[in-house]
Structures are given as C-alpha cells and as structure tokens.
Amino acid sequence: MRALIVDDSRATRAVLRRLLHGLSFDGIAEAGDGRQALEELSANGPADVALVDWNMPVMDGLEFVSRVRSDTANDVMRIVMVTTEADADHMVSALEAGADEYAMKPFTAAVIRDKLALLGVV
C-alpha cells in the first residue's frame, strides 16, 4: 500500500510516517503543503490513501482535497483529514469537498489505524 502525508509540520509528518510504516505501508511520500502534494500526485500518480492536514501555507488541505477530487484519475485515492480543525462546519466542508474520513489532532495511533481500517487500506 502507498500513502501520501500532507502536513506543513515535519514533526507531525515524522509521527505519521512511523505509524504508517508500522502498518506495513511500503511507499510513503510526504508534502509540506497542498501544492507540493499535487506535484507529487502528478509525478507519481495517486496513492492508496492520503493523510491531509488543513492549516498549511501556500495551499491548505481543503483546497487540495477539492482539486484532487476534480480529477477522476484520483478517485482511487482515499483521503483522511488529520487536523486540529475540529468543529462541525470544518468537518462538513471537508467531507463535501471529497474527504472520506476525518481525524482530529492530537491523534493516537489507534484512531488513525481505525480510520484506515474503515477505508479498507489496512
């Protein structure tokens, strides 16, 4: 399974990378903002799952998700928002834009694993 981690915090990317590695993901790509993530997708194609932060410079997570979902080539990629934006308004916007699951920061390994299991990627 391949994953894409999109978060402006390298510390959070490091935590998620270890977590995914422990769940036997073999290809893990990282991007520090939505634009970098789109570049990664156009270079290497969609991953099986993307873990996407909301608050990032250059292009935020919501815009990234909308752009990803405007290209049917990415339909195979499941998207989990992993964000500190925990209110209902944000959650609804993200799901409407095409995110499949939503996890709040701070997260635990168990929560991320459960979300991935719901999506059938672990």
Partner: peptide
C-alpha cells in the same frame, strides 16, 4: 526541529481552543 514541533503544538492547542 524545535520550532516546527512547538509551532505544531501551538496549532493543536489553538485549534482545540477554537473548537
């Protein structure tokens, strides 16, 4: 690394306060 981590910590704390 230190700046990155404490920035993310502030983001998480602020996000939870905002909610």
């Amino acid at each position: 690394d230190l700046s990155d981590c404490i920035g993310e910590l502030a983001n998480m704390t602020g996000g939870n306060v905002k909610s």
